[in-house]
């Protein structure tokens, strides 16, 4: 009973001969296909349409940048680069320096990231790897609901709920424990840089966590099994088999969250304190670029003032681009040589 293919091969039924009845139908299909031509026109039209969509991005960016530069001609000519490094903002006496706003935007966004990144990655890990099934749906729904709340509502909540909590319960502890760093000191109003950072953290949490969850889910099961088979614990499996493969997507999620934090206007305006100072103390009032635009645009009586505000818009535009470029550079440096995603 050794292998003898000829003997053991089961007899297979041969294919039925082409039925005569099918012939007319088949030739109709063939005739139709032949009559379609080479589709060169529709293909070219499609290509041009897509090219146009791609190029429109350049046009939009170009128009925005052009408008911002044109609108800030006056102050650009008058102060030059000093505008971006000046610390005094006094429209009455004609002093315009944007540094306090740049500082406020960057620091409040940084606080937001420091709070939101670990929290949202933790939430994403819990949702994808550990959450009991019945809880998974409601929890992701609630997380995504956070993203749908209008920012003015966040602002109101921050004024009436968050700021008093910070003032009465959190800030005293921070002053007591970390006062020596100089980052937390009296006077303790509740509103200020820290409050802005915390409300921003809550606002960007849903973006970062839901995108992180998506990339974690897309890591193939074979990667998790590869790590488990090596004798990994659950946490080691998540670290080596999931987070490592998802890291580029996670950085992308963080960049998107940061983008929202940098540009957020309403909620920040309501709790940051709106004082153009650069101080180390995170509990004192500060100001951000988007906030000063929202607050002072209607008050800009003379053309220099208006030009200064538009130039702050330009600065925000440039800083957003710079921060994004830097983040991408970071991703590139970390993952150099390694392919972007799991196979």
């Amino acid at each position: 009973m050794a292998f003898n293919l000829e003997e053991v091969r089961p007899s297979r039924p041969s294919l039925p001969p082409t039925a005569e009845a099918d012939a007319p139908a088949q030739s109709a299909i063939r005739a139709y296909l032949l009559s379609r031509g080479n589709s060169a026109v529709s293909d070219a039209a499609f290509r041009w349409l897509m090219l146009l969509s791609g190029l429109s991005i350049f046009a939009i960016i170009g128009i925005i940048a052009g408008e911002l530069i044109a609108g800030s001609r006056l102050t650009l000519a008058k102060f030059g680069l000093h505008f971006f490094f000046g610390t005094a903002w006094d429209p009455v006496s004609g002093h315009y320096g944007a540094l306090p706003f740049i500082y406020g935007t960057l620091v409040s966004s940084l606080i937001a990231l420091i709070i939101a990144v670990p929290l949202s990655i933790g939430l994403a890990i819990f949702l994808t790897e550990m959450c009991p099934k019945p809880l998974r749906g409601p929890l992701s729904f609630l997380t995504e609901l956070l993203a749908a709340i209008p920012s003015v509502v966040y602002g109101l909540w921050a004024i009436f709920v968050l700021a008093p909590i910070l003032r009465d319960h959190v800030n005293p502890v921070l002053i007591h424990l970390l006062g020596w760093t100089g980052l937390f000191a009296k006077p303790n109003f509740g509103i200020g840089m820290l409050a802005a950072g915390v409300i921003l953290a809550i606002m960007i949490l849903p973006i970062i966590s839901s995108l992180t969850r998506e990339v974690m889910i897309s890591v193939p099961r074979s990667q998790r099994e590869a790590v488990l088979a090596l004798g990994a614990t659950r946490w080691e499996m998540i670290r080596m088999g999931v987070l490592r493969n998802a890291r580029i997507g996670i950085v992308g999620a963080i960049i998107l969250g940061l983008g929202r934090a940098l540009g957020e206007t309403m909620a920040v305006t309501m709790v940051i304190g709106n004082r153009p100072d650069i101080v180390k103390n995170l509990l004192s009032p500060a100001y951000s670029m988007a906030s000063v635009l929202a607050n002072e645009f209607t008050e800009a009586a003379d053309s220099t003032y208006l030009s200064a505000l538009v130039e702050i818009g330009l600065a925000l535009f440039i800083i957003t681009i710079l921060v994004n470029a830097l983040a991408r550079l970071l991703v590139w440096a970390v993952t150099r040589g390694a392919p972007a995603r799991a196979s």
Binding site: S222, A229, R247
Partner: peptide
């Protein structure tokens, strides 16, 4: 158990973000 038993799967599943060296050293 899995520390004492090696497993090779149907589809090759090396860690794509690791070098060849790191793949072998991962365990």
């Amino acid at each position: 158990v899995r520390r004492r038993i090696g497993m090779v799967f149907q589809r090759p599943n090396p860690f794509p973000t690791m070098s060849i060296y790191d793949n072998v050293a991962s365990g």
